[in-house]
Amino acid sequence: MNDPTHISSRDNPLLKRLRVLAQDSTAYRKQGQVWLEGDHLCRALLARGHRPATAVFSDRYWPVAPHALRDACEHRVLVPEALMAGISGLESPAGVGFVWDLPATVGPKLGQAAVVLDRLQDAGNVGSILRSAAAMGFAQVLALKGTAALWSPKVLRAGMGAHFALHLVEVLAPEDLGDLGVPMLVTSSHRGDFLHQATLPWPCAWVLGHEGQGVGAALEALASQSVRIVQPGGEESLNVAAAAAICLHASAAAR
Rank of each mutant, 00 (worst) to 15 (best):
residue 164 F to R: 00
residue 132 S to W: 06
residue 123 A to V: 07
residue 166 L to I: 05
residue 159 G to I: 08
residue 162 A to E: 07
residue 153 P to V: 14
residue 130 L to Y: 13
residue 143 A to I: 04
residue 162 A to N: 06
residue 152 S to E: 07
residue 137 G to A: 08
residue 153 P to A: 10
residue 138 F to S: 12
residue 138 F to I: 04
residue 123 A to W: 10
residue 137 G to C: 05
residue 128 S to M: 14
residue 179 D to S: 11
residue 132 S to P: 04
residue 143 A to V: 02
residue 127 G to S: 11
residue 157 R to K: 12
residue 126 V to N: 04
residue 169 V to M: 05
residue 152 S to L: 05
residue 179 D to N: 10
residue 159 G to E: 09
residue 123 A to Q: 03
residue 176 D to W: 11
residue 177 L to T: 01
residue 145 K to I: 00
residue 146 G to W: 11
residue 139 A to G: 15
residue 178 G to P: 03
residue 167 H to Y: 15
residue 141 V to H: 08
residue 141 V to F: 04
residue 146 G to P: 00
residue 138 F to M: 00
residue 135 A to T: 13
residue 152 S to Y: 12
residue 126 V to L: 08
residue 142 L to T: 09
residue 154 K to F: 01
residue 168 L to F: 11
residue 151 W to C: 07
residue 161 G to L: 00
residue 137 G to W: 15
residue 144 L to M: 14
residue 173 A to W: 10
residue 159 G to R: 07
residue 176 D to A: 09
residue 174 P to D: 11
residue 179 D to M: 13
residue 170 E to F: 02
residue 139 A to D: 11
residue 177 L to A: 12
residue 179 D to P: 01
residue 124 G to M: 02
residue 168 L to P: 02
residue 170 E to G: 03
residue 137 G to P: 06
residue 177 L to G: 09
residue 160 M to F: 05
residue 161 G to S: 11
residue 126 V to A: 06
residue 167 H to C: 06
residue 171 V to K: 12
residue 151 W to I: 03
residue 173 A to I: 02
residue 170 E to V: 03
residue 171 V to P: 01
residue 156 L to Q: 13
residue 133 A to Q: 02
residue 123 A to T: 14
residue 131 R to L: 04
residue 128 S to T: 15
residue 157 R to S: 14
residue 133 A to D: 01
residue 180 L to P: 11
residue 155 V to D: 01
residue 152 S to T: 12
residue 122 D to Y: 02
residue 157 R to G: 02
residue 137 G to E: 12
residue 167 H to G: 06
residue 148 A to Q: 06
residue 154 K to D: 13
residue 143 A to E: 04
residue 150 L to P: 00
residue 154 K to G: 01
residue 161 G to K: 04
residue 156 L to N: 00
residue 131 R to G: 06
residue 166 L to T: 13
residue 148 A to M: 01
residue 129 I to C: 12
residue 138 F to G: 09
residue 169 V to S: 09
residue 165 A to T: 00
residue 151 W to K: 10
residue 156 L to C: 10
residue 172 L to F: 15
residue 140 Q to H: 15
residue 146 G to D: 12
residue 176 D to L: 11
residue 175 E to D: 15
residue 153 P to H: 13
residue 176 D to V: 14
residue 125 N to I: 04
residue 159 G to W: 12
